[in-house]
């Protein structure tokens, strides 16, 4: 409250005379607009190219406006349904489905475990709880490269090689480190007295979880779901190493068609596929709003 009040009083641009004030306002908005253009331009350029015929793009490149009479949405349809990627001509729909089948279960599972673990590590005291929290948190910092060979071996032993289930497994286990960290740091702020009172009333572990922790959890669940969904959807290395061909997630599929330097390019269709790959995390981002930022600050600084 106090902070907001001082901020109200203090307007940095209101210093100096009227003319200076107007110039500085102009500079600020000019700079903001310029930066906004730089940030938006790449995506806008690619978006426009999903509507242009191929010979047009080959001739003038990506940075040109589409001509109204040749604009078409058919490249989107092609990218979704009939485009050939790595031998199969089913478009990105198949890889899209793979990504969803990987991301949704892994997000849900890791979030559920994170809630329980976070609750336990913040509200129950037992021997080595600090060490255990440290161990789980260490997973946040592990470089993927250290786990590639062991995971490949473990997935092989479990019969999960080259399967979406294998990716769900890996992402769930690794994701638990993040979700536990987030949830534990969030639940720490729930007063211990609340838990104590409930215990005196005879509530046990699960009852406290259901009646006290879960009702207070929505904000951290949103943060965790956003973080996990975007992270897993966007992941590339595991998808590429642990799956191949038709079982790959969308990120690997994009590299498979756009990275191969040989063959005829279909820039418009590829552009549509790239935009499609960006859409789910963007939706989550726009809907998530402030929770996305909150997740960032939590994930980064704590």
């Amino acid at each position: 409250m106090a902070e907001a009040a001082t901020h109200q009083e203090f307007d940095p641009l209101a210093t100096g005379g009227t003319r200076r004030r107007i110039t500085s306002k102009g500079i600020v908005y000019g700079a903001l607009g310029l930066f906004a253009l730089i940030y938006l331009a790449p995506l806008m350029i690619i978006l426009l190219n999903t509507l242009r015929p191929l010979d047009d793009i080959v001739r003038t490149g990506f940075i040109a406006l589409p001509e109204a009479e040749t604009m078409s949405l058919k490249y989107w349809a092609e990218a979704w349904g009939t485009f050939c990627i790595g031998g199969t001509c089913e478009g990105v729909s198949r890889f899209y489905k793979n990504s969803l089948m990987m991301t949704i279960p892994a997000t849900v599972l890791s979030t559920m475990f994170g809630l329980l673990n976070g609750y336990i590590l913040s509200k129950w005291r037992f021997r080595y709880d600090g060490v255990i929290f440290g161990l789980i948190t260490l997973g946040v910092f592990m470089p993927q490269q250290m786990t590639l060979l062991p995971w490949a071996f473990v997935l092989g032993k479990l019969g999960l090689s080259n399967s979406i289930a294998g990716l769900v497994f890996v992402h769930t286990i690794q994701g638990i480190s993040f979700t536990t960290l987030f949830c534990r740091n969030y639940f720490v702020s729930i007063p211990d007295d609340l838990i104590k009172a409930a215990r005196i009333d005879g509530a046990g572990f699960w009852r406290i979880f259901r009646r006290i922790i879960l009702p207070l959890s929505p904000p951290i669940v949103i943060v965790t779901v956003i973080w996990q969904f975007t992270g897993i959807w966007n992941e590339f290395l595991f998808g590429t190493v642990f799956t191949s061909g038709a079982n790959q997630p969308i990120t690997s599929a994009i590299v498979a068609f756009s990275g191969s330097g040989t063959g005829e390019r279909h820039y418009n269709v590829e552009a549509a596929a790239v935009i499609m790959a960006a859409i789910p995390p963007l939706i989550i981002y726009v809907l998530g709003g402030k929770y996305f930022v909150r997740g960032l600050t939590q994930g980064a600084v704590k």
Binding site: A36, L40, E235, F236, T251, A277, P281, I284, Y285, L296
Partner: peptide, 12 residues
């Protein structure tokens, strides 16, 4: 606007 690139993948 400034933060959205972080939501899309490195691949995109």
């Amino acid at each position: 606007i400034y933060l959205y690139p972080l939501a899309i993948s490195f691949i995109v």
